[in-house]
Amino acid sequence: MISYALAGQADASARVLDEAMRLLSQPSRDDEVRLGQRSVVGDDLYAVYQTTCDIYLGLGTDVIDALQPRLDGLARSSPRTAMISRAKLAHAYANAGQPADAVRLAWETLDAHDQVGSHSALTEVRRTSRVLRQWEVRADVRGEIADLAHRLSG
């Protein structure tokens, strides 16, 4: 589903997401390996996957509305998932034309990364950084975007 979103194929991404959630909702047998994230279940799991696809498709405002209220709950169930979601939220803010919020969340993610560690979170901040480049012309965030890029390169 995410690969379809990265390729800009919204319909295919939505179709595969629906199928994945259908499969994950089926009861497992005792001899099966449990699929999905153990720390995030139900509607939150769907929201994490859906918002990830939407972010990669270039969406912002709807993603912010869906993901922002879930951060505290995600942090209680999994600090690592919350950190990755915070990085994705930064990307959504960049997509929505709110680079100051995107930079703030990217820095928060990097600070959390120093404590928890996550290659996935770093990858998401790098994706956010690429989107933020379009906002470097704004004087209010130019230096912060450059500082973020510098930290990511080091």
Rank of each mutant, 00 (worst) to 15 (best):
R126K: 14
R76N: 04
R86G: 08
R70T: 04
S78K: 02
M21R: 13
V103W: 00
Q115V: 08
A102K: 08
R138L: 13
D101M: 02
M83W: 03
L122Y: 14
I2H: 11
E32S: 02
V41K: 08
V103H: 01
V63G: 11
D43K: 10
Q134D: 15
L152N: 14
I55F: 13
L74K: 03
S77I: 01
R38M: 15
H113D: 12
S120A: 07
A14W: 07
D18L: 10
L132Q: 04
L6Q: 15
V103R: 01
R104G: 02
A14N: 15
Q37T: 08
R76K: 09
N95G: 06
V48Q: 01
W107A: 05
D147M: 05
G42S: 13
L152G: 08
W135S: 07
R80T: 11
R80H: 01
M83E: 11
A47I: 03
P69V: 00
A82P: 08
T128W: 07
R151H: 15
V125N: 05
H150R: 07
A146Y: 12
Q50Y: 09
A90D: 02
V41M: 06
K88N: 15
Q37D: 14
D30E: 04
S129N: 12
P99S: 07
G143Y: 12
L67R: 02
A106W: 01
G117A: 10
E32L: 10
A100Y: 11
A102Y: 04
A102W: 05
V63H: 02
Q37F: 09
H150W: 14
D18Y: 06
Q9T: 09
M83K: 06
D30Q: 06
G42E: 03
R76G: 09
M21H: 12
A94G: 03
T52W: 03
S25K: 13
P99D: 00
T81Y: 04
H119L: 09
L45Y: 13
L132F: 14
L89T: 10
S78Y: 04
D114T: 14
S153P: 12
C53Q: 15
G73R: 03
A20K: 10
A94Y: 02
E144C: 04
R15C: 07
L132T: 02
V103T: 00
D43C: 06
V63E: 11
T61F: 06
G117F: 13
L110N: 07
Y56I: 02
R104Y: 01
M83C: 14
G97Q: 01
A96W: 01
S118L: 07
P27N: 09
S3K: 05
L23I: 14
D101F: 01
H150K: 12
D65G: 00
H91R: 04
L122A: 05
D31I: 05
I64M: 08
Y46K: 08
S39M: 01
V41I: 11
R86P: 09
E32W: 12
R126A: 00
Y49P: 00
A47E: 03
L23G: 11
A149W: 08
V48M: 03
A139P: 15
I145L: 06
D18S: 14
P99W: 05
L71R: 04
L57H: 00
I2C: 12
N95E: 04
A87D: 08
D101C: 04
D140L: 00
C53E: 14
A100G: 02
S153C: 06
